[in-house]
Amino acid sequence: MNTFLFGVFPYLAMAVFVVGTIWRYKYDKFGWTTRSSQLYESRMLRIGSPLFHYGILLAVLGHAMGLVIPKAWTDVLVPEDIYHAVAVGGGMTAGIMIVVGFVILVFRRRTVKTVFNATTVNDKVMYLVLGLTILFGMWNTISTAFAPEEYHYREGVSPWFRSIFTFQPNVDLIAGAPFQFQAHAVTAFLLVMIWPFTRLVHVFSAPFQYLARPYIVYRSKGDTGQRPTPSRAPQGTWKSPTASKR
């Protein structure tokens, strides 16, 4: 079981992620959007959304620091206790921002009728997986903060995570980790797997090119802004099997 969850499943998830994203981009550019619900309700969104998103950005930085950079490297640069303080401090801040933001957003989505109407089954599944990932992640942060000696994730989970990317997955490294760490890893890879098929694709649209491009875009009539398609058939839009039946 461990071999599958921590040795096979991550590769499965990432393969689905890569292929799925390419496929979605190719066939569903029209559906590629955040599907904002701000038009319906903006008071709660104004607080919840920035809180959640900035929290997530902070958490991404934290994961890069804790998972990607080996402990041996940081030990050379900063003392253990300072590293721990930064990790826990940053982790708790990000965690609280994410949890509060997420609760506000889910509450809004459930209670504002127009927003709820615009919520698909797809969204609900995604929120469940995302919520579980956040829950276990928060548990990890709290357990690391209050019982730092119980489990050193940078000696177990982190090397396991890196071992995936060197194509020599070392399942034993994470097999001994507490439940919440294992659960966080599994739900996170599950999230990666469903990513291309949910609204989460909007992450890849982060419009950094806006900083560099001229303000006004001119385009010739025939220029689609993308590579020319061989035929002038209408650009394909992905249709779900159910759409044709409806």
Partner: peptide, 18 residues
Amino acid sequence: ATDCPVGEGGPGAFGGGS
């Protein structure tokens, strides 16, 4: 291209719910 892309597709698996 004969048809207006904004009318295409429908909500599908990813799109709107209402």
